[in-house]
Simulated scan of single mutants.
Amino acid sequence: MQIKPIKTAEDNRAALARVEQLWDAEPNTQEGDELEVLATLIEAFEEANYPIAPPDPIEAIKFRMEQQGLEDKDLVPFLGQRSRVTEVLNRQRRLSITMIRKLHDGLRIPLDSLVKEYQLVK
């Protein structure tokens, strides 16, 4: 096992190719250890070089609704009356701090997604 730091996109491609070769390696073997180390190095390189920004708040809410099979009416406990839910989802009203807290606590939507700035539709 000869592992080196991943510093370039080419290094990353080579590491990914090696991971593909090792994919079925048994844990606690030399190949399994190599796979584990390469996966850690690849993850660190990709997080540093290809960061994924959190979605805007409305997209995060809609995604969670889709994941949990929720409808607009299911957001009333988090956002208030049905008309307010519609305004928020249509980007006509901003989320309040109270709404953000309720969405985070109740639906487990990450705070970094909920507090991100987004455009209102006028």
Rank of each mutant, 00 (worst) to 15 (best):
T98G: 05
E59W: 03
L103K: 02
R93H: 13
I100S: 01
R101I: 12
K102R: 15
F63M: 13
V88C: 04
N90M: 11
Q92V: 12
R64E: 10
T98M: 05
A60N: 07
R64C: 04
I100C: 02
T98D: 05
R84Y: 11
Q92I: 14
E71M: 05
Q81D: 15
V88P: 04
V88S: 04
Q68E: 15
F63L: 12
L89F: 10
F78Y: 14
V76D: 03
I61V: 07
F63K: 15
K62H: 06
N90S: 14
N90V: 10
I61Y: 05
R93W: 13
D74F: 01
I97L: 15
L79M: 06
M65H: 05
E87F: 04
S96G: 10
Q81V: 15
G69K: 01
V85C: 11
T98Q: 11
H104L: 03
Q67G: 02
P57S: 08
R101V: 13
R82N: 00
K102E: 09
Q92T: 15
R64P: 00
P57K: 08
K62W: 07
I100K: 03
E66I: 02
V85P: 06
G69P: 03
P57V: 09
K62V: 02
D56P: 05
Q67S: 09
P77W: 06
E71V: 08
P57F: 06
L89S: 08
E71D: 06
K73D: 02
L89P: 07
R64N: 05
R82P: 04
V76R: 03
S96D: 05
N90G: 12
R91V: 12
Q68R: 15
K73E: 04
S83G: 04
M65R: 02
R101M: 12
P57Y: 08
E71H: 08
I61A: 03
Q67E: 14
F78N: 03
V76P: 10
L70G: 01
L103A: 09
D74V: 08
D74N: 06
P57C: 05
K102A: 08
L70N: 02
F78V: 10
T98Y: 03
H104D: 07
D74E: 06
L70T: 01
Q92R: 15
I58Y: 07
H104G: 06
D72A: 14
Q92W: 04
S83W: 09
L79G: 04
F63C: 00
L95R: 09
A60C: 08
Q68I: 00
I58D: 10
T98I: 05
F63T: 14
D72H: 13
Q92D: 05
K102G: 00
R84S: 12
D72N: 13
L95C: 08
R94Y: 11
Q68C: 10
R101P: 00
A60Y: 09
G80F: 00
T86G: 10
H104P: 11
I61D: 01
S96V: 07
I97D: 14
S96T: 15
I61H: 04
L95A: 08
R94C: 03
R64S: 06
E66T: 12
V85L: 07
V88G: 03
R84G: 03
R91L: 09
E59T: 11
E87A: 13
R64Y: 00
V85K: 01
R94N: 11
D72R: 07
I61S: 02
M99N: 14
